[in-house]
Design a protein around this nucleic acid. Sequence first.
DNA 1: TGACTGTATTCCAATTCAGTTGAATAGTCA
DNA 2: TGACTATTCAACTGAATTGGAATACAGTCA
Lengths: 119, 119
Amino acid sequence: MPATIPDAFLDVMAEKFRMLADPTRLAILRALMQGERNVTQVVEETGRNQANVSKHLKLLADAGLVSRRKQGLQVFYRLDDPLVDRLCKLVCETIVQDAQQAVERQKSLLSGWGGDGGA
Amino acid sequence: MPATIPDAFLDVMAEKFRMLADPTRLAILRALMQGERNVTQVVEETGRNQANVSKHLKLLADAGLVSRRKQGLQVFYRLDDPLVDRLCKLVCETIVQDAQQAVERQKSLLSGWGGDGGA
DNA sequence: TGACTGTATTCCAATTCAGTTGAATAGTCA
DNA sequence: TGACTATTCAACTGAATTGGAATACAGTCA
């Protein structure tokens, strides 16, 4: 672990983040966090159309975030990068924290007028 | 911390990741990880031109990742989201790990021929 | 006020990306 | 072989993003 990020890492890092920078891909990854799924299942769970899901799955597979397993007619995908889980958890936590802080700021504002924080 | 990621989070998460999904922005953030910097300093440290840096700084500020402080003619920016540091560290670590694993795979391949792993 | 410095904005061309549609491929079953 | 299902591929469109050049803006100093 270098003290500062080397120049050569910037592109690789950006590439990794870019894979996570799309709601459809995040929805797909969320489905795969529950366990292995075939394309049809992912389509159902994400509500996106099949070609679109297939394209994003290919992107994710090419990037090494998910792996493919063929079984008869179907292709099963599963998470293949523990990083995904950890990054998503981190970001999720901060979203929750940000929301909580927003609520608290709101409360403290209201308390200035002697309110109880209710609407 | 929800058991699974809520639908409403997907867009927010994607937005956060998108901010990190660009090498120029990562270079800027890397500079700011060392401490507060004004625009000129960031320009020097990143090697990007001024207009470009200024634009990305605005994006980052709007997204809440960095904060601005004006002092005379200059505007100082600094990291304002602990998430950035943590996400970057995580990704960096996995890049290093991936590289190490690649080296080991290479070694074990070579050892099959009785080599010592050298070039 | 006018010159100068540091920063922000606007406009533009090029590129990239997400999503849709329609066709193609691969595996299964009769 | 032929019908059928699951998946992928290719082409297209519209929208978003990037970087660069030029310009505008804001604060300082003489």
